[in-house]
């Protein structure tokens, strides 16, 4: 029953979708404050390489090492996006170019690869990977077992985060103020909300979540650092934010859909299904384009909840 192909596809969709969700959730928080972060790919890679470094150097129990690695990855991601925040919020540079600069600087042939070289983490399997757990001993339950009870700790945390983020955005005062900053910074400023502070905090938080997404690649999916191992996941996450209409719940579903597409090629190959791997590899990228086309008409964009001030630097009226 549990080796049924659909059960495997769904459970691996959740596994592969988890890092996409972390990065996309970070994107939601950042974009809700009105900052567009196109540096997600680079941020994930820096998070991933830092997490792998931490895993190789921090001793102690498996649980402790993995937790520290995740935190180090989050910290590294947060640091990288502090740079983005400085460029976009304080210096008011063009946000698309600044994000692109982050990805080129930190990306596959940039700083993440440099760190991997000098820290010697490349091609060394991490000693304590993030493994799937057996929750309540229910992992072998037919159908639901592999899907719900045999996932990684980070997956369960991400479900919690999806709920927390939804409540935060739509049910708390701070969340309301955050959305005000993204919709109309002038109004928010007039209400006495610090636009700068909200944007900085949520950009850094978003980067930290992207960093965790990167750690999932180097500690769970492969579990070895490989240069450029996210292979475009950061960009797919950016599209997922739009696909999920800037809402955590829908984004979670979207992440699993793309997780399914990403894992399909290895799942089917393992099953001996004769289908061109290239076409399957191309699917996530084609789907991203299709999804973007579907939701990107100006009308749809506004109706679906794009923050009105997204990508626009905030300037107080000049005197």
């Amino acid at each position: 029953m549990n080796s049924n192909i659909f059960v495997i596809i769904i459970s691996s969709a959740i596994f592969y979708g988890t890092p996409l969700f972390y990065a996309a959730l970070g994107g939601i928080l950042t974009e809700r404050s009105g900052v567009l972060n196109l540096g997600v790919e680079g941020t994930m890679l820096i998070g991933g390489v830092s997490g792998a470094w931490a895993c190789l150097h921090i001793g102690g129990s498996a649980w402790f090492t993995v937790t520290m690695s995740i935190l180090v990855g989050a910290l590294a991601g947060g640091l990288v996006s502090t740079l983005l925040a400085f460029l976009c919020i304080t210096l008011k540079t063009n946000q698309t170019v600044a994000g692109l600069a982050i990805t080129i600087f930190a990306g596959a042939v940039g700083l993440s690869s440099y760190f991997a070289n000098i820290w010697k983490v490349a091609k060394t399997p991490v000693p304590r990977p993030i493994r799937t757990m057996d929750v309540f001993g229910l992992a072998d339950t037919p159908v639901l077992g592999p899907i719900l009870f045999r996932q990684t700790s980070l997956t369960y945390v991400s479900w919690l985060l999806a709920i927390v983020a939804t409540v935060y955005l739509f049910r708390t005062r701070v969340g309301l103020q955050l959305r005000a900053v993204g919709e109309s910074p002038q109004t928010a400023d007039a209400m006495g909300i610090s636009v700068i502070r909200y944007r900085y905090i949520h950009t850094i938080l978003g980067g930290a979540l992207a960093g965790i997404g990167g750690v999932f690649y180097s500690l769970a999916i492969v579990p070895t650092w490989v240069d450029g191992m996210t292979k475009g996941a950061g960009w797919i996450a950016i599209a997922l934010v739009i696909f999920g209409f800037w809402r955590p719940s829908l984004t979670l579903l979207g992440a699993y859909l793309f997780g399914a597409l990403q894992s399909l090629s290895s799942t089917l190959k393992a099953r001996g299904v004769d289908i061109s791997g290239d076409i399957l590899d191309a699917l996530p990228f084609i789907m991203t384009i299709v999804v973007l086309v579907l939701v990107s008409s100006r009308f749809a964009h506004r109706r679906l909840g794009a923050p009105a001030a997204l990508g626009v630097p905030y300037e107080r009226e000049e005197r």
Binding site: L83, L87, L91, K92, T93, N94, V97, A98, L100, A101, I102, I104, F105, A106, G107, A108, V109, G110, L111, S112, S113, Y114, F115, A116, N117, I118, D227
Partner: peptide
């Protein structure tokens, strides 16, 4: 190490982007 030149290129892009600000402001 490889990645060094990419890092330098990224830094050049950063400062070029930030430099645009000095032209406008």
């Amino acid at each position: 190490p490889s990645g060094l030149v990419g890092t330098l290129q990224g830094l050049i892009l950063f400062t070029a982007v930030a430099g645009e600000i000095l032209i406008k402001y």
